[in-house]
Design a protein around this nucleic acid. Structure first.
Lengths: 329, 329
DNA sequence: ACGGTTCACTGAAACGGTTCACTGAAACGC
DNA sequence: GCGTTTCAGTGAACCGTTTCAGTGAACCGT
């Protein structure tokens, strides 16, 4: 049974320097006291191996220096890449991230969001599973929230990085039409509670405009499960796929390979996201690229500003770009 | 500027029920007080929307219910998969994970490990970047630590899930030899500070035993960077690769495709890890499978037991299995 | 009727910082 | 020399829980 080694407290440092705890607290944060004292306190603190306890500090001051990152579903490879990028970018800003995964479950999203608030994160980045939840309005009242992907309905966010899904969908479907496809299966990730999310609406509208015959099916982002869905669709005669996440497209690759179907000769696949992996497949996956690095930078810039007390709210709309690699025949 | 809505405190609940704060505290945790009181306190607490503040609780009790997960490098797809799996498995145990990423940097690993300890996580799962660091011994003194992948030198861990790398390397290299390869490039992830980690030692030993002519090169786990290294090795005439992480192997796939080299006809690639993605490539990546689900289950079982105060230390050795899929010609 | 348990509950001291309101001394303007 | 600022530093309250050591009261067996 591990026994926590007793750490030095601020009062011990106070005693050792002959100052009051208050002064030590101020000195270590470089406020209110003379340069000379700051120096002395620093030295003594280092000697004693003193380091402020983050929990006590959080209780007393209400802040922690941490940024919460609440992912919609880490099963999606693109979201994984985003999380890794954000973690690293925050590190470069001397902040650090608490990463939590809602696993695509709106109720878990609620729990975890509240948990992060209660953990006193200075600010929150969220990729909402359920952007329409009343939760967000409540949360925005008590800490700065930056959302990625969808706007949070009725909430005063500290910033948003949203995707121009309308443009993205148009790009994708027009490309498929230009390549001569008329019957297209649309594989969209499971999104509880928002069956009519904007992106899906755009798909229907654009398909109508372009005269495409589409069938929308929800597919899980997990590779194995997505492969199952793809298998079924192939069996149903579908040969052209628009996947609303690159990781779903990987499932189509896998299912096609199993059945001896070649991409792009027999089967056409269009992705949406541009995961780093997508360029490495053969053929490369043709997809809609959202510039993951740009999103990371934007989100981190917004959240760090908000955590520092900057109140200017900004909405950044990310423009899509078609990344043609040869998976659409 | 968001103003934290004032939450109900335990004293308000105490006042509302006519009990002392102490009793409320006990009641809400179902201890020490009568069933009837427990029921009443629960009701009043719910009415007031009271929920215990985790920070204050952590300060007073020293525990949080959270499990820390310190990843060596989330850039590695396999580690990503592991992190996701552990997160979900912990969720099934009504625990939740704080995921941190050392980004392959031993000094960051030290910082983050201490930070997790200071955050009062009940226990820690770590995939060490530097298994030999003195840090671990210190850490094991103050909280239960479960390591995955490598043993922590000289530290009293609460459990370990280690890989039988000797067997894994043998499996991989024997397979390559059986397929007629004699000159093999070994691509191993960058591991600061432990150039002579056991796995690498095994590679040299086994290669010697099998009469292979190997060249060991360190390659980053990031896809793009790994592709660079692969490109260089191909240019140097190498045609057989043993990659110490599947994500590095993906880089070889990409570099080969670029140069019009076909797998397995022109180039042979052997992975190590079995990422879910590896079965979806074409050809599938032949790799050494460590049963990621088994590792997740084992690690979570150990860490939950340890967090619950169970002191039985266990060391679980994971046996490898060759997953032959056709990337070795 | 009496010592001993058990039961339900309480008061107050932690936990380890931060912060507010204040103090004594030095510096300043005039 | 006097009133006012500034400066460096302090004392004590506070953040919201948990937990230790009790305290009466009821209940027990004898």
């Amino acid at each position: 049974m591990p026994q926590p080694r007793k750490r030095a407290t601020i009062r011990e440092v106070a005693k050792a320097t002959g100052l009051s705890p208050a002064s030590v607290s101020y000195a270590l944060r470089g406020m209110q006291v003379s340069e000379e004292t700051i120096e002395r306190v620093r030295r003594v603190a280092a000697e004693l191996g003193y380091e402020a306890d983050p929990i006590a500090r959080a209780l007393a001051s209400g802040r922690t220096g941490m940024i919460g990152l609440l992912c919609g579903s880490l099963e999606d490879l693109w979201q994984q890449a985003l999380a890794v990028g954000i973690g690293r970018a925050l590190k470069d800003n001397d902040r650090y991230a608490l990463i939590l995964d809602a696993t695509g479950d709106p109720s878990r999203e609620r729990t975890l969001a509240r948990q992060l608030r209660d953990q006193r994160v200075d600010a929150l980045i969220v990729q909402p599973v359920d952007p329409a939840a009343p939760l967000w309005a409540e949360l925005c009242e008590s800490l700065p929230v930056v959302s990625i992907g969808d706007s949070l309905a009725g909430a005063r966010t500290a910033g948003e990085v949203v995707f121009d899904n309308r443009a993205g969908v148009t790009l994708a479907l027009e490309h498929m039409r230009d390549r001569g496809h008329r019957r297209v299966a649309v594989l969209t990730p499971t999104r509880a509670s928002t069956p009519d999310r904007p992106a899906d609406v755009h798909v229907l509208a654009e398909a109508g405009r372009l005269g495409l015959d589409i069938e929308v099916v929800t597919a899980p982002q997990a590779l194995v499960a997505a492969t199952d869905v793809a298998r079924r669709m192939l069996a149903g005669g579908h040969r052209a796929f628009f996947c609303f996440a690159d990781s779903i497209a990987y499932g189509v690759y896998a299912a096609s390979a199993e059945q001896g179907l070649r991409i792009p000769a027999d089967v056409s696949v269009m992705g949406y996201d541009d995961h780093p992996m997508s360029g490495l497949l053969s053929p490369g996956l043709t997809t809609v690229d959202w510039d993951i690095d740009g999103i990371v930078r934007a989100a981190v810039r917004l959240v760090v500003a908000a955590a520092d007390g900057n109140t200017r709210r900004r909405r950044i709309v990310q423009a899509p770009e078609l990344r043609e690699r040869g998976s659409v025949g």
